[in-house]
Design a protein around this nucleic acid. Structure first.
Lengths: 139, 139
DNA sequence: GGTGTTTGTTATATAACATAACAACATTGG
DNA sequence: CCAATGTTGTTATGTTATATAACAAACACC
C-alpha cells in the first residue's frame, strides 16, 4: 500500500507526537495523573504561588479549561488554592502533591530517556533544537 | 517565570506538533477540509479502491471513527463508495474530490516548505529521520 | 459446512480544546 | 478620588479527536 503521507515531515511530526503522548500517558496512568495535570504540577512546583491564569498562559491552555484541571488536582488533594487579593488565587503543591510529583518526575525522566534513545545517535542532538525552532521560533 | 518543561524533548515534541497542526488546520479551513479528511483523501487517491478498514489501519484511526469521517466526505461529494463483495466498500475520489484534493495538495506543499524553513539549516536534514525513528522505530 | 475473523456500523464515553458571557475585582489615567 | 478598562476565576456550551463495546452480515479456511 502506497503511503505518500510518510514523505511529509509534518505528518511524521504529528504521528511521532501522538505515539509519544500515548506512551507517556500510559506510563503516567498508574499514578492517576494525566499529561496536562502533570505539567501543571511541574510548573506549580517551579513557581510556587503562581495563579491559574499565568499557568494557562505558560501551558497554552485557556483560562476556562484550567478550571476543571485544577479542580481535579485540588479534589485529589494534590494542590491547594489560597486567595491572593480577592481576585487571584495562589497555587501550591500540598505535601501529598509533592510526593506524587516526585513519583511523576521519575516517570518523566525514564520516559524522556527512552524517547531520546529511540532516535539514532547522529540525529539525537538535532531533535530538540529543531522542535524548539518550530514552536518557539519567531512568528 | 521558570519553565522546567522547556528542557524536555517530549514536551517540545508535543508543543511543536500542536503548533504545526494549528497552522495546518488554519490553512486547510478555507477548503472546507479537516486534517484527517485531507489525509484520507491523499491515501484514497494513492490507493484507489481501498477499503475503510485499510485506510483506518494506515492512518491509525479506529474503524468506528472512520464512519463519520467518510460520511462527511461522501456527503460533500468528494468520495464515493462502491460495494466490493457485500462486506467491504471500495473507496475512490469523485471528480470533485480530485479537484479539491489538487487544491489541498498545494496547501500541503506550501505548508511543508514553510515548516521546514522554520528549522535552522544545520538541523533540517535530521528532523524527519529523527521523527520517523520515534513513530516507526522498532517496538 | 461450521468456526473464527473481518467489515461496516451504531451507540456511547472521554479527553482536549474553543468561545462567550459574567461578576468581582484591580489598575491606571486623569 | 473615581471612571474607564482590563484581569481573574468561573459557568455554560460546543467541537474535535479518540476509545470501547456490541452487532449483523459476510467472508476465509480447514
Amino acid at each position: 500500500m502506497a503511503d505518500p503521507l510518510q514523505s511529509f515531515p509534518g505528518y511524521a511530526l504529528r504521528r511521532a507526537a501522538s505515539a509519544m503522548m500515548t506512551e507517556f500517558s500510559a506510563r503516567l496512568a498508574p499514578l492517576g495523573l494525566r499529561y496536562a495535570e502533570t505539567s501543571a504540577m511541574v510548573l506549580i512546583e517551579a513557581n510556587p504561588g503562581t495563579t491559574a491564569s499565568q499557568l494557562g498562559r505558560m501551558l497554552d491552555i485557556q483560562r476556562a479549561n484550567m478550571v476543571p484541571l485544577l479542580n481535579r488536582l485540588e479534589t485529589a488533594g494534590l494542590i491547594s488554592r489560597q486567595p491572593i487579593d480577592g481576585k487571584s488565587h495562589s497555587l501550591s503543591l500540598t505535601p501529598a502533591g509533592q510526593v506524587r510529583l516526585a513519583e511523576a518526575k521519575t516517570v518523566i525522566d525514564t520516559f524522556e530517556h527512552w524517547l531520546i534513545a529511540r532516535v539514532p545517535e547522529e540525529h539525537r542532538p538535532h531533535l530538540k533544537p529543531a522542535l524548539d525552532a518550530l514552536w518557539l521560533g519567531e512568528g
